[in-house]
Design a protein around this nucleic acid. Sequence first.
RNA 1: GCCCCCGUAGCUCAAUGGACAGAGCACCGGACUUCUAAUCCGAUGGUUGUGGGUUCGAGUCCCGCCGGGGGCGCCA
Length: 600
Amino acid sequence: MFTHEQRLLEDKIRAWLQANEIPVPDAFKWVPLPFSGEWGISLALFPLAAQEARRAGKRVNVPARAQEIAAGLAEHLEGAPGFSHIEAVRGYLNLYFPTAAYAQRVVGTILKQGADFGRGDSKGERIMVEYAQPNTHHSFHIGHYRNAILGESLSRVVEFAGFDTIRASYPGDIGLGVITVLWIYDKFYKGQEPEGIHERGQWLLKLYVEASRMLEPRPDETPEEKAQREAWDAERREMLRRWDAGDPYVRALWEETREWSLEELRAILEMLDIHIDVWFFESEVDGPSKAIVDELIARGIAIDERPEGPVIVRIDEQLGLKKEKYRTAVILRSDGTSLYLTKDLALAKRKFEQYGVDRSVYVVDNRQSLHFRQVFKILELWGFEQAKKCYHLAYGFVSLPEGAMSARRGRLVLFKDVADEAVNRIRRVSAEKNPDLSPAEREEVARTVGLGAMAYAMLSVDNNRDIVFEMERALSYDGRTGPYIQNAHVRASSILRKAGDLPSQAAFDYPLSDHEVTLIDQLSRFPSVVQQAAEEYRPMVMAAYAYELATAFHAFYHAVPVLQSETPDTRAARLHLVAAARQVLANALRLLVIHAPDVM
RNA sequence: GCCCCCGUAGCUCAAUGGACAGAGCACCGGACUUCUAAUCCGAUGGUUGUGGGUUCGAGUCCCGCCGGGGGCGCCA
């Protein structure tokens, strides 16, 4: 926020350190001052003191020496422009901003930049985020939801931070699981599909569950049952072979049912306000992937053991590692058909070459960590520079209190069911809290706040942590939740609505209360939080920030009168502050894929 | 056997190697004639699994151990 003044200051500090023969750091690590009623930044001098002692080769009392340096700097910098006063405290150099000017600048900048406040300068790099990779012929469950919302939030964060961003979806539209559904549909259920996009999508899942039960060996089965099961399984495998051979009947059946799943997926993504730029389908990268294997063999990276064995890459051996770390990857079956890994190599190549991406992020659950380490290493061995900037955003998978979800066993929680329940609950709460809303408004509130609760429940947990999905917790609207943050936005909107037009002028030259100072402090941090969340690929950082900002606003709202301020001047300033808070809340919520409502 | 993730308040989780380890839930006590109480204020709650090491400084980095989860040649 005060980067210009900060830079001038750093030059002065460097000069003074040099003059006093104290080590000069490459970069200064400024940290916001722990809040004490005034804003400022601070610098720890311990590293310099320690470095100095090491250079001199003698033992010194580092904290004392740090304090000495801080005091020297404080004296030297006295009166620096842009700062009200400067102190040396316990080895830290603390610089304070002039209160009125700081508040003015923070609030003024926000109101001027609006929805762009916090947007980072262009990084000149293109990033592709791959997420939303559900299998077709299933239905979208709560685990897919975590994936989608995490990927979308990350996309919005990196885009806002300054990356040219491409959103990619990679549905698994082929494989034995898909064929299983095709088989049972064709044999027993053809033409019996229900009406309705979601009903039909979920119906495919029911077929999958039933088929899995029919095809799974049972310990107590009779010889007749066993024969029947094996006959069915043979039919299923024959169907996969026919698909592979391009059989028109199987292909047509596949395309029709696949479209049902994709329709449901598109409907859900639309509901979540997710707009995918590029669709990759597994069935599309199947062909090109085989050419890659040939190249890897020709270059001596892969070993062809066909026909007795598959095509493999001994990654540890290639890297000269003694321990098993990347292990051996199988990149082609002995019968010449491609694998998951083969397809991911082909897809990565396409991302680099066709879409010119510099960085590639894969939002996939952490059970596939080894898979992606193998993919990235093979890409590196193959010679792709961008492989070093490939990142697997491994998030913990979502399970249920009764154990892991299992599509095969039909033990899963569907996203749509949870979303419907969320909307119902919020509709009831809204009717109770705010009876004056029109039915149309109520529906909109129920939808956006219900989905907001769900999104926040997913994003407020760090990626690497597993989530045990419990309805009560996920749909909570008390405390640290989406609705809490949305409510702060509603309250700000309400004040502004009642105030009418925003005063053209506002100055913060009156004694600010702690609540105002804290709120302004939070507002000023938003741009750096955007950068941090993007650098670390962690939407949770933004989720934590949004909550803290909302807390600061709620406390302010409760304690500080705005419309009934003591004087017109304070009223004007506070209205500007409320407008700024509303703006930043909206910006933060947008990055969390949560709608910022004006009423609720 | 090897690799990865995790272990912080009763529970669920935070904390760029920096100042006093913080929130929510739950529990207890307060605040609606007010800009919407989906809120606020306060109280209670900790040997950061454990033993070493590095550092001026460790919840954070390194090594060992214990406990939980996941993964490891032709599933995705």
